[in-house]
Every structure is written in C-alpha cells, then in structure tokens.
C-alpha cells in the first residue's frame, strides 16, 4: 500500500511538470510583446526594455525555464510586476478565504447531494424523483453569478439575514466566519450539488437492481439498511470520483463568486492579475490550482481502497 502511494505520488510528478511547462510558456505564447502590453501606452522604450529584462524575455527560453524551475522548487514564484511583492507571499495571504470557501462548499455539497441522490433513486420515477431531477437541471443551468446576486438580494438585502459581502477569517471566530461564507457557499455549491446528486442517483439505481440487494431484502433488512449499508457503499466509488473531478468546478466557481461577494481570496487575485496582465501572479495561481487538483484526485484514487475491497494496490 505504501509502495503504491509512493508510486502514485511519483506518477503525479510528470503531470505537475507538464502543467508548469505550459504555465511558464504562457509568457512566450502571448501574442505580441507582453512587455509592451504591460507597460501601457505611455511607456518609454527604456521602461519596456526594463520590463522585458525583469520578465527574462530578453533571454533564451531554455536557461530561463531552468532557472524558473529551480526557483519554483524552492517556493519562489517570482515577483509581481504591479505590487513588487513576492508572488508566493501574495498567494499565501489570499489562500485562507478561498480554501475556506472550497472546503465548506465541498462538505456542504456532499452532505446535501448524497442523501438527495439516494432518495431520488429510492423513489425512482415518482413525483419526488422528478422534482429533484428538475432542481438538478436548474442547478446546472443557472450561471454562478446570477445565482450569487439572486441569493444576495433575497437573503441579504431583502431578508437582512446575512452579510451582503466581505469575509472574516477563522481567527475572528467560527460564527462570523461561517456567516460570511453562507452566501458564497450556497452560490458555488449549486452546480456541484446538482452534479453529485445526479451521479449518486444514477449509480444507486444501478446498484439497487443488483442481486445482492435482493439478498439483503430477503434477509429481512430494513429499507434504510438496504440503502445506506448495502447500496451506498457500492455506489461510493463513483460518487467519490465525481466529487474529486468536481473540484474543478469549485475552482472556477470561486473565481466568480469571490468577485460577486468581494471576498479577498485567490479568485479576486486571479481576476485582478489577469486584468493587469501580471504574468508572474497568473503563473503562480495556475500552478497552485493545478497542484491542488492533482492532489485531490490522487486522494480520491487512494480512497477507493476504503470503499471497495476488490481494489488492491
């Protein structure tokens, strides 16, 4: 097992390296002269040359790549062109809100979506099932920013139940932290819940038609035991896979949602960096998100062992 984990960790190295390569090449693939674009309309040739030098655009690709890799390995993601701060420091300052948002959304979505999917499967082809599936279609189709403004208008502006925007760190207390997260979490989790619920339902439908479910009923097991002991465990590998793949949705959702609710997280940082063409910052964030995504899916792969004894590493 430990050998397998090490093997899988090693296997993620090429993925991360390729991602880093693409991220690094962003600068070179940008049409035109990124230095000139960054410097703006009123820049003098000297300023442009200076920017070009600071980006290393005046040097050949390979040496530049190697030194960049070396720096990244030491945790140095370069310096922001705009603020002049180290990118690593900027990211670390913003990481709290985003990861809070993603983690709470993940937990909330799983808690809601899995039982909903199970119930829909159990009540297959009834009014309840149809209602749940209709809601899931809605969850898929409403854009995150629409849902965000709608929720903010309903729950914050009209009902005055929650703060309209902003963020409080966990160090201010769990209460304020959660209160500020409710709206963003609800906003991001819409799509995610719809996705997990649908997969849970489909997989459960498949599992519930299996022979061993009939065996469980023939033993005299209650319907709850049939659903949650016998069926759900068999469905869990598929559900966990989708939860892992869906993390991509969370990343995209966070970027939009943070803008809507003025949360000072990585999403906002990303949007600002793109608008300012702050390439080192963009590179750093993409690298971080890719790494998180690879790591999450590695964990998902490893978790299969817990759910299905037939899977052996």
């Amino acid at each position: 097992m430990i050998k397998y984990i090490l093997q899988r960790l090693l296997a993620t190295v090429p993925v991360v390296v390729i991602v880093a390569l693409i991220v690094f090449s962003l600068l070179f693939l940008t049409p035109g002269d990124p230095a000139a674009v960054m410097a703006g309309d009123q820049a003098t040739p000297e300023q442009i040359a200076q920017i070009r030098e600071s980006l290393g655009l005046d040097q050949p690709f390979l040496p530049r790549l190697l030194s960049w890799f070396g720096a990244v390995l030491q945790g140095d993601l370069g310096t922001s062109i705009f603020t002049g701060q180290p990118v690593t420091k900027m990211i670390l300052e913003r990481i709290g809100p985003t990861f809070s948002l993603m983690l709470v959304t993940l937990v909330f979505a799983v808690i809601v979506a899995v039982p909903v999917g199970v119930i829909a499967a159990y009540r297959h082809n009834t009014l309840l099932d149809n209602a749940i599936m209709a809601a899931a279609v809605l969850g898929f189709s409403v854009p995150v920013f629409v849902l965000g403004y709608l929720l903010a208008w309903l729950l914050a502006s009209n009902a005055q139940l929650l703060p309209v925007q902003g963020y409080r760190p966990l160090s201010d207390g769990v209460g304020p932290w959660l209160r500020h997260l409710v709206l963003p979490v609800l906003t991001v989790s819409g799509v995610y819940i719809a996705l997990i619920a649908r997969i849970t339902r489909t997989t459960m439908l498949e599992v519930l038609s299996q022979d061993y479910i009939r065996t469980a009923r023939a033993k005299g097991a209650s319907e709850r035991a049939v659903l949650f002991v016998h069926a759900l465990r068999n469905a869990s590998v598929q559900v966990v896979t989708v939860v892992g793949l869906g993390v991509a949705l969370l990343i995209g959702g966070a970027v939009v949602t943070e803008t809507v609710f003025s949360i000072p997280g990585l999403g906002r940082l990303t949007v600002d960096a793109i608008l300012q063409r702050d390439y080192p910052v963009i590179q750093g964030i993409i690298l971080l998100f890719s790494f998180v995504y690879v790591l999450v899916n590695l964990l998902v792969d490893l978790s299969y062992v817990l759910f299905d004894p037939r899977i052996r590493y």
Partner: peptide, 13 residues
C-alpha cells in the same frame, strides 16, 4: 438465489 457470484454484497466481508 440462482447467482451465487452476484448475490453476496461485494464490499462487505
């Protein structure tokens, strides 16, 4: 039942 291969729950001991 007829199918011993599929009549036991595969994920439970």
């Amino acid at each position: 039942f007829q199918e011993p291969m599929t009549s036991l729950n595969p994920v439970l001991p």
